Amino acid sequence: TTYKLIANGKTLKGETTTEAVDAETAERVFKEYAKKNGVDGEWTYDDATKTFTVTE
């Protein structure tokens, strides 16, 4: 399944996707990606669109 991340960070803005077996796995991947890019904010997830959003 393809999951999408929308990053609304102070230093990183944009979108990326990952293939994962479930939302929990995708969330781990995206949180690691955000951490590597210095983004720390509020996370939301929309199951209907398989989209995570992080906003600083």
Rank of each mutant, 00 (worst) to 15 (best):
K50M: 07
Y3V: 01
T18K: 03
D46A: 04
D22E: 04
L5F: 08
R28G: 06
A23S: 10
T51Q: 04
E19I: 15
D47Y: 08
T44S: 13
E24T: 11
T49W: 03
T51H: 02
A7L: 15
G41I: 02
T55V: 09
F30E: 00
T49Q: 06
E32L: 09
E27K: 09
D47E: 14
T11G: 13
T17M: 11
K36R: 12
E56W: 09
N8S: 09
A26G: 01
Y3S: 01
A34S: 05
K36L: 13
L5Q: 01
A26S: 02
K10Q: 13
D46I: 04
R28H: 09
V21T: 13
K13C: 15
T53G: 03
F30M: 02
E56V: 10
A23C: 12
D40F: 14
L5Y: 03
F30G: 00
E56C: 06
T18F: 12
E32K: 06
Y3M: 01
N8V: 14
L12H: 14
Y33S: 02
G14D: 08
T53W: 10
T11C: 15
E15C: 14
K4F: 12
E42P: 04
A48T: 13
A26I: 02
A23V: 12
F30D: 00
E27Y: 15
T44A: 11
E19A: 08
N8P: 05
Y45K: 00
K4L: 08
D47H: 11
G14A: 12
E24M: 12
R28F: 08
K31G: 03
A7P: 03
K10I: 15
D47V: 09
F30V: 01
A20W: 02
K36D: 10
T16Y: 15
E32M: 07
T53H: 07
E19K: 13
T1A: 12
K50V: 03
D40Y: 14
V39R: 02
Y33I: 09
I6C: 07
D22R: 03
L12E: 06
V29D: 05
T53K: 06
Y33H: 05
W43K: 00
K10R: 13
E15T: 13
T16I: 15
A7E: 04
E27P: 00
D47F: 07
G38Y: 06
L12M: 11
G41K: 01
A26D: 00
D47I: 08
T53P: 00
K35A: 12
E19R: 13
K31V: 06
V39M: 12
V21M: 13
E32H: 07
I6Y: 07
D40P: 03
T17I: 09
E42V: 15
E24V: 11
E27V: 05
G14W: 15
F30L: 04
T16G: 04
F30K: 00
A23N: 07
Y3W: 05
E42F: 14
Y33Q: 03
G9V: 13
T53R: 08
A7R: 04
A7C: 15
T17A: 07
A48Y: 10
V29I: 15
E19P: 04
G41C: 03
K13Q: 14
V21Q: 14
T1D: 10
T16L: 15
V39F: 15
E32P: 01
T2D: 04
T17V: 09
E24D: 11
E24G: 09
K50T: 03
T17C: 14
E56D: 11
E24C: 13
Y33R: 03
G9Y: 06
A34E: 01
T49C: 04
V54P: 00
Y45G: 00
K4P: 01
T18I: 15
V54K: 01
E24S: 10
E24H: 11
T16E: 06
Y45C: 01
I6S: 04
D22L: 04
K13M: 12
V54H: 02
G41F: 03
T16C: 12
G14C: 14
Y45H: 01
D47M: 08
K36N: 14
D22K: 03
A20L: 03
D46F: 04
T51N: 02
V29R: 09
A7H: 13
G38S: 06
Y3L: 01
E19N: 13
L12A: 06
T11D: 11
A7K: 04
T53C: 08
K10M: 14
L5G: 01
T17D: 05
V54Q: 02
A23Q: 13
T55A: 06
Y3Q: 01
Y33L: 09
E15Q: 10
A7V: 15
T25F: 06
L5M: 07
A20V: 04
L12Y: 15
K31H: 08
R28K: 13
E27A: 10
K13E: 07
L5A: 02
K36Q: 12
K50D: 02
I6H: 05
G9L: 15
T2A: 05
T53A: 05
T18W: 07
K13L: 12
W43N: 00
D46W: 03
T53D: 02
T49Y: 04
T53F: 10
W43C: 01
D47S: 13
E32T: 07
T2V: 14
Y3R: 00
D46Y: 04
V54R: 01
N37G: 04
D46R: 03
E19W: 15
A26E: 00
E27G: 08
V29M: 10
R28P: 02
G9M: 12
R28I: 10
W43S: 00
T51E: 04
K36C: 09
A7S: 12
A20C: 10
A26W: 01
Y33F: 12
V54E: 01
A20H: 02
G9T: 15
T25V: 09
E15Y: 13
Y3T: 01
W43L: 03
E42K: 12
K35V: 09
G41H: 02
T55F: 09
T44C: 11
W43H: 00
L5E: 01
D47Q: 10
K31T: 04
E24A: 13
Y3D: 01
V29S: 06
V54L: 12
T44F: 12
E24K: 11
D22A: 03
G38M: 06
T18Y: 13
G41Y: 03
F52A: 00
K50Q: 10
T16Q: 09
E42N: 11
G41Q: 02
Y45V: 01
V21D: 12
K4Y: 13
G41M: 03
V54M: 06
E19S: 10
E15K: 06
K13R: 12
E27F: 15
T53N: 05
K4T: 15
N8C: 13
K10D: 10
T51D: 01
T17F: 15
F52N: 00
T18R: 05
E27W: 14
K31N: 04
K10P: 15
D22Q: 03
V54Y: 03
T44K: 10
Y45W: 03
E27M: 14
K35I: 12
A26R: 00
V54F: 13
A23W: 14
G9A: 13
Y3I: 01
D46G: 01
V54C: 07
E15N: 06
G14F: 15
N37I: 09
L5I: 03
K13G: 07
F52Q: 00
T2G: 04
T17H: 11
A48S: 12
T55M: 08
T2S: 07
A26Y: 00
T2F: 09
K4C: 05
K10W: 11
A48V: 12
A26Q: 01
E15I: 09
A34R: 01
I6D: 03
G9E: 03
A26P: 00
E56I: 08
E56K: 04
T11I: 12
I6N: 05
E42S: 10
T11V: 13
V39C: 13
T51R: 03
T25L: 05
G41D: 02
D46T: 05
V29H: 14
T49N: 07
K35G: 06
A34I: 07
E56F: 08
T18E: 04
D22T: 05
T11N: 14
K13S: 11
T16H: 14
E42C: 11
A20M: 03
K10A: 12
E32R: 05
A23Y: 15
